[in-house]
Design a protein around this nucleic acid. Sequence first.
DNA 1: GTTATGAATATGTAGCTACATATAATTGTC
DNA 2: GACAATTATATGTAGCTACATATTCATAAC
Lengths: 241, 241
Amino acid sequence: MTSAGRQSWRDLRDHIRGRILDQTFRPGDKLPRDEDLAQEFQCARTTVQRAMQALVDDGLVERKRKGGTTVRPDPVTRTTLDIPITRAEIEARGHGYRHHLIDRSTPEAPATIAARFGTPDPGKLLRLRALHLADGQPYVFEDRWVSFDTVPEIAAVDFSQVSSNEWLVRNRPYSRCEVQIYASPCTADEAAIMEVEPGTAMLVLERTTWLDEAPITHVRALHAPGYRLITGEARPGKLAR
Amino acid sequence: MTSAGRQSWRDLRDHIRGRILDQTFRPGDKLPRDEDLAQEFQCARTTVQRAMQALVDDGLVERKRKGGTTVRPDPVTRTTLDIPITRAEIEARGHGYRHHLIDRSTPEAPATIAARFGTPDPGKLLRLRALHLADGQPYVFEDRWVSFDTVPEIAAVDFSQVSSNEWLVRNRPYSRCEVQIYASPCTADEAAIMEVEPGTAMLVLERTTWLDEAPITHVRALHAPGYRLITGEARPGKLAR
DNA sequence: GTTATGAATATGTAGCTACATATAATTGTC
DNA sequence: GACAATTATATGTAGCTACATATTCATAAC
């Protein structure tokens, strides 16, 4: 709450959310119009608007012009997932970071990559396979494809020093990113690299990034057994909101 | 773009984002103050504020009072994950949905559940194990614990008709949710239920939800091989923003 | 030097106004 | 009754103003 009589949009948001949580408003129900809520809460419509937009972003309500505000009938569990640079992640856990470039090649683009990029011809590609280690233990094995067309400078980078993961994130921000998460049994090759038994259940994160329509990179990152992706409320940069 | 001379905060957001993407502003760099940007773009500071907040939400920039706006030095890949009700998910894929309650019991709370709930004593718990089927094929196996203290009505619900997943989501909205995602080899029990070989790599989603401080439920959901969690830009309710 | 104290300043918030825009609801036409 | 045109209305957006609040930076006191 801010000083004295002023209503914060947060207070209003929390109040409405509370009414949704305590079933005063049930899924599908229509909420009062902004102006009525403003009157009820003795605040400006601006404030109601802000509170409502927050609830829309949370996936709790839907708003339509003239149609008014309704509680979403099909509730979803919505969370935010932050995937940091692997080095940062390992160091944040207090482990020593090291990475190792396994190989670097410029093979023909397989159809799967072209499909992921969404282009018929992905052009020349650089393939990098690298291992990230935490305290010397295999942590993440990444199999990456980078578009030479979109990122020509990559030819000159020495990836024995910087990981391609870090270099790309720092030097090639993307405008669109798609992530797929699934479990996969470890192949013999991968098992040798990750120092686990073949067939071990591994968490795989596939990420594809674009700059506008141009594909930047596609990575398939295999995570060591025991790895857990955690999503919470705490979204950096959104904490205080 | 809106009519004629008016600047949309979206235009401004996209412009600034563009400057970050094209490296005009690099990680760690300081952006001009709101007022200067407003002047430069011939718009009100309100508009700059809105655009900036959008960039903060995207995890692209950080803002501090008096400190100004800076491009985030530690870029993260941020995505939004929507986990729908399992029935809705299966039906959206065009499959027939069916679910089967395997068993229902009220055992002592294991320490792991108490730990997840974050309470020393989680109170009396209901345990439900159920299988969701898509076109008759095992799709998700969920092992759920529900707090009787928080959700006493659950004792009376007939879960042979409605899945606990759906009942809870529809009747017990939460205020906080934590998700963990990992890969796990299938145990013999689980393998029998999911009709797969023991040891098969399975994607596991663990969800814990609270209403304020009171724990509602904890689920461990085992997904059939081939299942992929996909996160995209498209966030329902946030599409147009 | 080191630590309080205070002023300066960039962002955060809320209110007001005015108008834009989508769409539900109504009316009119055949 | 079915369909098209029109009106009414709830939300969306942007500008303005005023003040709140958190830091940084500079200054003063020890």
